[in-house]
């Protein structure tokens, strides 16, 4: 292209560009304004957001706490590879055991409700252990209070969730599973520092999901299926929230915000 040609091209471009201001009509502008104005915040959003802003700002002003939270995240990451290797073979074995036990219970005529401790009994208590605690170490409870009494750990299903089921895994993991918008989630709590999620698979990505809380989102893949978990720590308790039926990042993040 000649030098003159380039100049002509630039001039033409400038002419075209300046026309954009006159191309867009007041009506078009009003239509877009109206649609954007129609975005209504949820009820109570103003107060909720304000409270969160103050909380987040306050957290940022305590760098020592933040450093501690980051250190916690780093510690958890460093132990993950070994544990994932372990869980690759240990968890399928555990899952098979659970299936065998559930099958055996069904065949012997017991209903699942038979093994729920609706009185909030202690699984270490001999009277309770009589039929409620399964050999696999998974014990179901009728409420979060009962589970807390047994394990000292509190996990709560978010408000509005369905199919809520509380159980302990061994003596040091509290678990609640529930569904939100038709997707199944599991929340576990433990004072253990290792990976007690029970998920295994190839770790394909992980990222900070909530800097303030030191929460890390990890994506895992196993046999072509991708699932997500979010891990964080509050006080001396580690938490992990998991989804394995395709809730997506938005889904698990939304539930994380409800349970964190």
């Amino acid at each position: 292209m000649s030098h003159e040609g380039m100049h002509m091209n630039d001039n033409t471009k400038d002419k075209i560009h300046t026309e954009i201001d006159t191309e867009i009509t007041a009506e078009e502008r009003a239509a877009v304004q109206e649609t954007l104005d129609s975005i209504e915040p949820a009820e109570g959003a103003k107060e909720r957001m304000y409270a969160n802003i103050l909380r987040k700002a306050s957290a940022q002003e305590t760098p020592i706490q933040e450093a501690a939270a980051n250190a916690s995240v780093n510690r958890k990451r460093s132990g993950k590879v070994t544990l994932l290797r372990l869980t690759r073979w240990a968890l399928p074995v555990a899952a098979c055991l659970v299936l065998l036990i559930v099958g055996a219970i069904k065949l012997s005529g017991h209903k699942p409700s038979d093994i729920i401790d609706t009185q909030g009994g202690d699984p270490t208590d001999s009277a309770f252990a009589g039929g409620a605690q399964q050999p696999s170490g998974i014990t179901e409870y009728g409420s979060s209070e009962a589970l807390k009494k047994a394990t000292g750990l509190e996990v709560l299903a978010p408000q509005g969730s369905e199919e809520v089921l509380y159980c302990s895994v061994g003596t040091d993991i509290a678990e609640v599973s529930f569904t939100v918008s038709g997707k199944q989630y599991t929340l576990r709590a433990s004072k253990r520092d290792d990976d007690f999620s029970g998920l295994y698979g190839e770790e394909i990505n992980h990222t900070v999901a909530d800097k303030e809380n030191g929460a890390v989102l990890t994506a895992l893949r196993d046999e072509g299926v991708t699932f997500n978990k979010i891990e964080w720590k509050a006080g001396d308790t580690n938490y992990v929230l998991m989804n394995t039926d395709g809730a997506g990042l938005n889904g698990i993040m939304a539930v994380y915000k409800m349970v964190k």
Partner: peptide
Amino acid sequence: YRLCFSYMHSEADAEDCAEDVFVKVL
């Protein structure tokens, strides 16, 4: 909030992002 919602398409994410904008100010 509206601006954030227009990007995030989710009430929870829009609130979270909007909060972070104001945290920067604060």
